[in-house]
């Protein structure tokens, strides 16, 4: 279970998160939508203290941290409860695919090297990369790299996996592969928080959708409620614009 209370964060006196309260049940898949600059990525990064909130309480599993007096030890404990999949993959550039997945197991979970290798190979099989174990990230396509990123998170068997726009750096034809891997994980009952622009993903996979704007959660509900019966004007306008954009993208590409 994840519990956030009164999370506030500012950059150079500019408030980005204005007091976020949120509760996520075990096994829930939560999608966060919102225009750029709405604070959705910052919120995700506050969950594992890649950004330290200025105020508020973060709880993941049985670790509770008051961010105002968070110690290094507490931040580390929170991070060990979670894992993250990054927009730009952030695979360890000097390690092979299987070493990337093993790294967290060996260092953070203190798993024996041999066991870590077995576990990693199993997870990599799940994401369809058994044939790339000893490749370096630079030898993989973006889609393959992101699947390694997912495997690296999955192998740690965390309370929650945080996805930060996992498909937005990918070429359009590679998005499908990665999304289907994320979908299959979602069906296994792992708690996930996903920041994304993929509306179809939000609609089909998540149990709950949050719409954020200007540092607050404007509206939340089931995908059905948000996509077909949004109460807030801001939400409706955003969804309209997004669908409009996707309508115009092919045209824009032709012009370029």
């Amino acid at each position: 279970m994840i519990y956030l209370q009164g999370i506030k964060k500012s950059f150079n006196q500019l408030p980005v998160l204005k007091g976020i309260n949120l509760k996520i049940e075990k096994g829930e898949v939560v999608t966060i939508l919102g225009p750029s600059g709405s604070g959705k990525t910052t919120l995700l990064r506050c969950l594992n203290f890649l950004e330290k909130p200025n105020a508020g309480i973060v709880q993941i599993g049985n670790i509770i941290v008051d961010s105002e007096k968070a110690t290094k030890k507490e931040m580390l404990a929170i991070r060990k409860q979670s894992a993250m999949v990054f927009q730009h993959y952030n695979l360890f550039a000097h390690k092979t695919v299987v070493e990337n997945v093993m790294e967290g197991l060996i260092v953070a979970k203190k798993v024996k090297k041999k066991d870590a290798r077995h576990q990693s190979e199993r997870v990599l099989e799940k994401v369809g990369l058994s044939d790339k174990l000893h490749h370096y990230p630079s030898q993989l396509s973006g889609g393959q790299q992101q699947r390694v990123g997912i495997a690296r998170a999955l192998a740690l068997n965390p309370e929650v996996i945080l996805f930060d726009e996992p498909t937005s750096a990918l070429d359009p034809e590679l998005v499908g592969d990665v999304l289907s891997v994320i979908k299959s994980i979602a069906q296994e009952g792992i708690t996930m928080v996903v920041v994304t622009h993929e509306m179809s993903f939000a609609r089909e996979v998540s149990n709950r959708v949050l719409f954020m704007d200007e540092g607050v959660i404007v509206e939340e509900g089931t995908p059905l409620e948000i996509f077909h019966a949004a109460k807030e004007e801001r939400t409706r306008r955003f969804l309209q614009r997004i669908s409009g954009e996707s309508f115009f993208t092919p045209l824009k590409e032709q012009v370029n």
């Binding site: 594992n48 730009h88 952030n90 790294e103 967290g104 953070a108 945080l162």
Partner: peptide
Amino acid sequence: NGQMEAAYSVGMTKFQAMNRIILPQ
């Protein structure tokens, strides 16, 4: 910077991240 963040995200300490991820590269 992403290498450091990825190291943190899998639960490494600052020292472990420096020693295992940043310095070798």
